[in-house]
Design a protein around this nucleic acid. Sequence first.
DNA 1: AGGCTTGCTGCAATCGTTTTCCGCCCCGGA
DNA 2: TCCGGGGCGGAAAACGATTGCAGCAAGCCT
Lengths: 339, 339
Amino acid sequence: MTNSPTLKEVAQRAGVHVTTASRALNPATSSLVNPATMRRVQAAARELRYQPNAMARGLKTARSMSVGVLIPDLTNPLFPPIVRGIEDVLASAGYTTLIANTDNDGERQTTLFDTLRARQVDGIIVATAHREDRIFTDAYAEGTKLVLVNRRIDQSDIPAVTGDDHDGIAMAVRHLIDLGHTKIAHIAGPQNTTTGRARLRAYRQSLEDAGVPAEPSLVMMTNGFTEVEGARATRTLLDAGRRPTAIVAANDMIALGCLDVFSERRLSCPQDISLVGFNDMPFIDRLTPPLSTVRVPHYQIGAEAARMLLDRLGNPDLPAKSITLPATLVLRESTAPPS
Amino acid sequence: MTNSPTLKEVAQRAGVHVTTASRALNPATSSLVNPATMRRVQAAARELRYQPNAMARGLKTARSMSVGVLIPDLTNPLFPPIVRGIEDVLASAGYTTLIANTDNDGERQTTLFDTLRARQVDGIIVATAHREDRIFTDAYAEGTKLVLVNRRIDQSDIPAVTGDDHDGIAMAVRHLIDLGHTKIAHIAGPQNTTTGRARLRAYRQSLEDAGVPAEPSLVMMTNGFTEVEGARATRTLLDAGRRPTAIVAANDMIALGCLDVFSERRLSCPQDISLVGFNDMPFIDRLTPPLSTVRVPHYQIGAEAARMLLDRLGNPDLPAKSITLPATLVLRESTAPPS
DNA sequence: AGGCTTGCTGCAATCGTTTTCCGCCCCGGA
DNA sequence: TCCGGGGCGGAAAACGATTGCAGCAAGCCT
């Protein structure tokens, strides 16, 4: 901000050339300099509280030692754990994380993506992908280092780290069937995301596998993984004739919307209707009732994605691999046998 | 990542010198170049999808157009709203935000602070300050642009944006007294933070103002604004003789700990004991019971802090001003008259 | 004793911008 | 016709680091 010391000043103080100072301070090259000199330089650096100028270094080395993270919205409790997972492993590798909130706005997303690239980030972790996001596939094809979290992109080999949507939903549906439910509804997430679609498919498949006839009227679509969308869909679901005895929500935010409508309609959960969410996001266990949901290891997803990115930064032509982390069903108090 | 086009390439394509290209693309200097030339350059830039290299620019201009944000932990729901407030106003001014989590670890904080400075951030917003944090006062004295949020530093003129701790607690205590409580306890926050101390003081003051005798045994200290600390303090509070009929928690996380202990002890809230939190953090309204708490406008605090930083960046010798944003008491279902 | 390696250090170019200082061209006024 | 000046655009020097290359001394070998 004011006058941070430069390498030149360190060199002068140590009585050596700036080149030598550079080498002495860099672990990779410090073997090239006399140990005694090295100590002198390091002492000088310490006294001056020298911090290398990251921009100058980045300019020369063409690596910024930073990575961007694109998420919809930080205030959605789903994302902080993912971000922390990312930050923790990235930070320990010396990288800085730049977070950008797209608010599910495509234009904003493009702008932010460009901003990140202008900042010369070494790679980008994307949590906002839609099934067909040319912006990402194009960038990836041109060599931008990308890793997807949570959601994937159709027919793309961009590496991704996700939870097991299919298995998670399967467990949830199975659980409801085991309780005796047959009229099981699904409030589906946006179908332009792989998560929204995979969960819907898993719901249908699970019903079929159990021999429970599918009823199209029990599936409601939403335009976003949000509480208001969840509430809207739940209202139209309940208004339409055949009332379900259980609902599988595409995620916890949507489930929150379900609960809102339940109390509007004076339906008690789980006595009148059962509900299962997805994600096990923070605080969802403290609701009334504590929500049964599918737990996805978000911190690990973030951490794994960061590791994957790091790997690919170190070795650019590593084969693109995607990882699916196991989901687990966590039963609390929002499900019960049908009355 | 691969080969982003440089200004030189844009210039070549437009058939002008790189200097001219630079001027044409920069709104501040574009008046120096012929409108026709400018259009040519801009067209070339668009075709090449040119993005100026932020590191090169920053190196030359000594401004990174980025600011750092120091918070304890992103997964604490208190902080995402603050961060969004910061990011939104900063982004609209063209700045990028770098977030760092200190985990309340002093050493880590120092490291991260240095990392941010190495990245040449133009300023830093600090949410982790303790009452005596030499690291910040020293840096501020040396010219580092700082703004404190949420917490302040004793005897320092570093600009700060905070909620009204005193008034908030006063309202909470007043409310309990009005309900008829006299045995009102306080689970105090860490006394090495201004928030922890201000809230404790306000609690004592409010009791005194109302003529309710203070009982030292009704005040419990914690070592952190966390659920486990809150629970620990609540247990020792309840184990010690005179049981309170109401608790004012120093913040919502601590209140969460109180609720945990209430259910351990089979105390129902608010029938057996009333509870008021502080912050009105997300989801605290969906607990059982919905928590009465003091609302602090976190998004605005963040936004205001960012604006303040921006102002001081634009005009370095602006007088240091601190802002206190009003708190409001939001009554829900965790308080009732003593039984 | 001369040549060669080895070990250390310095020189200078470079990364992609911005910015100061000039120079050129053209036009108008005298 | 000449001069002055405005309007544009170019040359070059930074910013602070890294790095290939060269230099130089000392030590070893033959």
